[in-house]
């Protein structure tokens, strides 16, 4: 059972990062490889406001989110918009370049030593043999609330309907009066906000270090790929699923005989995904009819 809690914590982080990313891919067909850096900047700004400026937690979180939004706005207008219409793969190069620049910026501004946000209410709760820290419980619940909000926005509002319209057919939506370009910008900013939340998550749960960015991006893309490219729900479910697999791989005494060495924690779930995609290349949750 403890493994389930562990998976919930790890999965929440992955889901935060991957859901925005999946939306961006689903609509713009753009890979944002500077995502990890956006995450770090959100986290680092929050850390700086909390630890350096001694501001209350709420302001800190808003500041971090603001920074994430700002970075993704810049990402869209400078590094994505001028290029993605020519060829979607151009943005692969431009966002990698942006990522490198942001890496250097993070090193320069926040230095290379790790940072963390330490909450004063860092107690742990125990019920029925399961243990979870209060900050972690807060993080898991906040993530679920955020993702539900995200779902509500996407499926039950006029704004969400416009997004889905753009996702299905860009030009047709535009001819019906949907302002697709500014929606694109908004979507990227939304993914930046979710990424920044992920960064704050990391700062509270673990610690931030400048080398973290690229592995984060990779992990988020694993969930995006497994969930069916561009399928937001599939992506979120897969993020939790991969996390659960990771915990099961090292946490379970397999067949009562052996433990899988911890070094395989990240590889085994990805292997699963690859094998699965061999048989169902559209991803775990994408129906074939929608793939076209």
């Amino acid at each position: 059972m403890q493994l389930l809690i562990n998976a919930l914590i790890a999965g929440s982080l992955a889901a935060l990062l991957a859901s925005g990313l999946s939306l961006v891919y689903g609509i713009l067909r753009v890979f944002n490889l500077a995502l990890g850096q956006t995450v770090l900047i959100g986290g680092y700004v929050a850390w700086w406001l909390f630890d350096g400026m001694h501001l209350p937690m709420l302001v800190t979180i808003l500041g971090g989110i603001g920074a994430g939004a700002l970075v993704s706005w810049l990402t869209y207008d400078v590094f994505v918009k001028p290029f993605y219409r020519r060829h979607p793969h151009l943005t692969l190069v431009t966002t990698i370049a942006l990522g490198m620049m942001l890496d250097a910026l993070i090193l320069l501004v926040f230095e290379e030593r790790p940072r963390s946000i330490q909450l004063t209410w860092g107690r742990t709760l125990e019920f029925g043999g399961m243990i979870i820290g209060v900050p972690q419980l807060f993080l898991v619940i906040t993530t679920l609330v955020l993702l539900c909000l995200f779902a509500f926005l996407l499926h039950s509002t006029a704004f969400g309907r416009r997004i889905r319209a753009v996702a299905q057919q860009d030009t047709a939506a535009m001819s019906l009066g949907v302002d697709a370009p500014s929606l694109h910008r908004l979507i990227l900013i939304m993914s930046g906000v979710l990424a920044a939340c992920g960064g704050i998550f990391i700062a509270i749960d673990q610690n931030l270090s400048p080398t973290l960015a690229f592995p984060l991006t990779i992990k988020a893309y694993a969930a995006v790929t497994a969930g069916g490219m561009g399928n937001v729900w599939g992506t979120i479910l897969c993020a939790y699923l991969i996390a659960l697999l990771e915990q099961l791989v090292v946490g379970v005494h397999w067949f009562g005989a052996f433990y899988v060495p911890a070094g395989f924690q990240a590889t085994v779930p990805l292997l699963f995904i690859i094998i699965f995609l061999l048989f169902k290349p559209t991803g775990l949750f994408l129906r074939a009819s929608r793939a076209a």
Binding site: I5, N6, A10, I202, Q247, G251, Q265
Partner: peptide, 11 residues
């Protein structure tokens, strides 16, 4: 670079 030790710690 591993940062998630929860399941190892559970064991």
């Amino acid at each position: 670079g591993t940062k998630d030790y929860r399941s190892l710690m559970t064991r």
